[in-house]
Design a protein around this nucleic acid. Structure first.
Lengths: 192, 192
DNA sequence: TTGCTTGTCTAGCGATGCTAGGATCGAATC
DNA sequence: GATTCGATCCTAGCATCGCTAGACAAGCAA
């Protein structure tokens, strides 16, 4: 039994290594540079080994996305917890979101721009994704306003942040006024 | 002289054909299906001909994006012109924006998701893109609120719409409550 | 007719994601 | 300790991608 357990441990370790290397490579040189050949070379195995862990490149992107979602949820909760009062909390949340997107562009892409083969907004949505949305909902629910469904409000707020994050990073919005845009968004959307 | 003029006309016509076919193919089967080989086959010329018109696939995407930007600007202005009063006008504008994105997903991708090699938010930004932003600004400037820079407000509003458009289409937001989300966004962001 | 420019095509390069089939290695059995 | 056998891994290759070099043909000027 012990032999098999050891093998499973090694396999799990190698799988974590694949995801970590994919993420690192993506952050360093962009997802285009994450080819199966390069990935295989970096983990010091041949290409087909990747396919014994993942069905394809898409699934590797999906694994990075899940890892990122868990981290983002934690970062959002930490930022919200550090502030008193709904308004300050929401502002901190928004900044933390955009900060995460800016600091981890490749991970953010894996989560929201690329196709990682993950289900969203459904029953079978993976737990880390649901939890990321929940982390937003926790702070945003209290500023949704009377008669507005908290979930719907969270969706709108999230979409707005997502728009700011992606357009800024793609050079579609000038980078200098980021802070002013966040303030405007929070002041208008959040009630009290 | 006439011979040369005829040739230039034919060349320009072929270039329009390339862009039209690329757009059609992208809308039908997605941008992944727009390969240089398939494109060449459909215009009934060999691959290298494409490269005598465009530097590469990126530039073809860029051409589709410019065409789309001009159409979108016209659609936004038409929607705004049909309504009286700032609030109604902005609501119509928002719906027209999301409607365009939904009806022309491939064109929308070319404009805002893919790399078409275009400059944004800069001096040398192509005219159709500037005009698209201007079309938004015309209606949104009057609801920016006191002391808020119209351009900044337009950026935030646009980013929010962009977030809704992309997240909805990628299946990240449930499709049914789209209208409620738009109403909420307009009600909160637009002043009076 | 002879040259030259202009236009187009065939063929090919180096990559990509992914896979079939053979080799190798280690654990279990005699 | 030798042998069998299954799991594990690698070499080699496929189809396709964006892009380009070089051959070829058509049309114009001399």
């Amino acid at each position: 039994m012990s032999v098999q357990e050891r093998k499973e441990r090694e396999r799990a370790g190698r799988e974590r290594l694949i995801v970590a290397v994919a993420r690192e490579l993506a952050e360093q040189q962009g997802w285009d540079a994450v080819t199966t050949r390069r990935l295989a070379e970096r983990i010091e195995y041949s290409q087909p080994v990747l396919y014994s862990h993942f069905r394809g490149k898409r699934e590797i992107i999906g694994a990075v996305a899940l890892e990122g979602a868990a981290e983002m949820a934690a970062a959002l909760r930490a930022a919200a917890r550090a502030e008193d009062g709904p308004h300050k909390r929401v502002a901190a949340l928004a900044r933390a979101y955009l900060d995460f997107a800016e600091r981890n562009p490749a991970v953010y892409d894996a989560m929201f721009q690329l196709d990682g083969g993950l289900a969203f907004a459904r029953e079978d949505t993976p737990e880390p994704l649901k939890d990321g949305f929940a982390a937003l909902l926790e702070s945003l629910g209290e500023v949704a306003g009377d008669g507005v469904h908290p979930g719907l409000f969270t969706e709108v707020f999230w979409a707005s942040l997502h728009g700011l994050a992606t357009l800024t990073r793609a050079g579609r919005l000038p980078p200098q006024d980021t802070e002013a845009r966040v303030e405007l968004l929070v002041d208008r959307l959040a009630v009290i």
